[in-house]
């Protein structure tokens, strides 16, 4: 559910929604969600001073039953 929710939130704020990919991994400290977006959308998903990425983390942690969720934002080309 978390990965689907994150994918939806990110697809709505980018110019290339079809390029959004979310992978979810369970780490010992909790869940890690990796979002990959088109390189042109990277700045928007991170936001000024990391504001948008922080908002995504805040919402995902609120939706998670197990508390804090790590959300990493990456460019599709691996940057």
């Amino acid at each position: 559910m978390l990965a689907d929710a994150l994918e939806h939130l990110v697809r709505g704020i980018v110019d290339h929604p079809d390029d959004v990919q979310v992978d979810s991994r369970s780490l010992r400290r909790g869940e890690l969600l990796e979002v990959r977006v088109h390189p042109d959308d990277l700045g928007r998903v991170i936001g000024r001073g990391g504001r948008t990425a922080r908002a995504l983390r805040t919402v995902m942690s609120a939706l998670s039953a197990q508390g804090s969720v790590r959300v990493d934002v990456l460019g599709l080309d691996g940057r």
């Binding site: 704020i13 504001r51 948008t52 908002a55 995504l56 805040t58 919402v59 609120a62 939706l63």
Partner: peptide, 24 residues
């Protein structure tokens, strides 16, 4: 309630994302 969060911090985050979705 969990979408509001402590001091409305989740609400503010959702508002921010929603504004971006509209802007997009």
């Amino acid at each position: 309630r969990r979408l509001v969060g402590a001091d409305g911090e989740v609400l503010d985050a959702l508002q921010e994302l929603t504004r971006l979705a509209v802007q997009t």
